[in-house]
Amino acid sequence: MAMKQVKVVRLPQSLLQQETDLLLDELDRKCTQIMDEHDYSIALVLPESLKIGLKVLWWLDDLMVRFTTQETSLYIISNIEEQIEAIDLSHHDQPIPVFKDISELSRKLQASVEDDDTHREDAAASESILPIPGTIQDQIIKTAGEKVETTGEYRCLSCHENRMWLKGDTFASCSNDICVQKNKGWQLTFVLF
């Protein structure tokens, strides 16, 4: 009997702060791409921050139907208790197998797991990752005098006026006349390059 072929689907770290809709869009795109091009089953690594609400469950239902039609399987990788419980409860009639990690899946299913791991590197070396245009990285705060590392739109933390900053430039104080704390800093609100 041929060994089961499983491909791992995960999200880049930089997307994890995004809204559920965007996360699901990206996961769906990745799953669809693999289902279209290959005869693989998929091990879906759920982001730790993902709250399993109705949107996620509906999406999982839809994904399950697509896998069943294609006669391949969907596995979930998660070790978050709330996520596992929510999936178990909602899919008690047709359970989705959940594994704590990839090695457990590989061991228990005796499967050949293909994990290109292109997005796991960001936990260890986030500096080396290119920004994703269109995303919001509101945890990035810069102050006047610092070098601009990411071209994009920034919001003044005092007056909330937006402006663009170009990579290589140096952050200056806010130039808005009515701003009362021109040196409070800049928050990255739209990533370009």
């Binding site: 995004q18 965007l22 869009d25 990206e26 245009p133 269109g134 663009m164 739209f190 370009l192």
Partner: peptide
């Protein structure tokens, strides 16, 4: 994605 629709504008 929707998030990318604003990239050209920015």
């Amino acid at each position: 994605h929707d998030a990318q629709k604003n990239v050209a504008n920015k």
